[in-house]
């Protein structure tokens, strides 16, 4: 349940107090698993199978989610889909606000030309990460369509961007923080909300 997270929280500058009473779990590992299974089905349904389909995970936590979706799709359909990794550090418009992010490599293993690309991220908030990701993606070619899958949509958009596949809609206040923790990065799966006022 409310175990202290073993690793650093999302966002380098957030200072988390372990087991703070203001932290509340909103999705368990089971919930995440079910949501990703549903999203995998929805992606297949909407794109009528895996033909021309590619998943691109946004680093850091979108990437393991993209790999999990690809594994589900493999399980359901019997053939896999390519997974790419996108680092949006070089495309952000808020570097001056949040300090220089550490940039990692982008790996797009296949040509984007004519593909139906599903961008995968953990949380959809202002939409600025997705804007940056769209810019980054177009530097690799011209996909036929770009769709967006997120585990959490917490609202407060600052740009005209919406998700095509959503694990869970979570109405939040601006001062609250959503943390998605995934096993590959944080050691275990859960989604918590921080800074709630009771």
């Amino acid at each position: 349940m409310l175990e202290p997270a073993p690793l650093a929280p999302q966002g380098e500058n957030s200072q988390r107090q372990d087991a703070s009473p203001a932290e509340r779990q909103i999705m368990s590992a089971q919930d995440i698993r079910r949501a990703l299974s549903r999203i995998a089905h929805e992606i297949l349904e909407r794109n009528r199978g895996t033909e021309g389909l590619a998943l691109v995970g946004i680093r850091t936590r979108g990437l393991p989610m993209a790999h999990r979706l690809a594994a589900r799709i493999q399980e359901f359909e019997g053939h896999g889909v390519p997974v790419g990794a996108l680092d949006i550090g070089l495309y952000r418009d808020d570097v001056a606000l949040h300090g220089t992010p550490v940039v990692h490599s982008t790996q797009i293993p296949i040509a984007m030309e004519g593909k139906n690309v599903v961008l995968v991220d953990d949380v959809l908030f202002t939409g600025r990460s997705i804007r940056a990701a769209l810019d980054a993606l177009t530097d690799f070619g011209r996909p036929k369509t770009v769709q967006l899958a997120v585990l959490i949509d917490r609202g407060h958009r600052e740009l005209p961007i919406r998700a095509d596949y959503v694990g869970k809609n979570v109405p939040t206040a601006l001062h609250e923080e959503i943390q998605v923790r995934v096993e590959e990065v944080d050691g275990h799966d859960e989604v918590v909300i921080l800074g709630e006022r009771s």
Binding site: L90, V95, A96, G99, T100
Partner: peptide, 10 residues
Amino acid sequence: YLLVANKEGP
């Protein structure tokens, strides 16, 4: 990148 990108930062 490391010197210029966040020049208007803190």
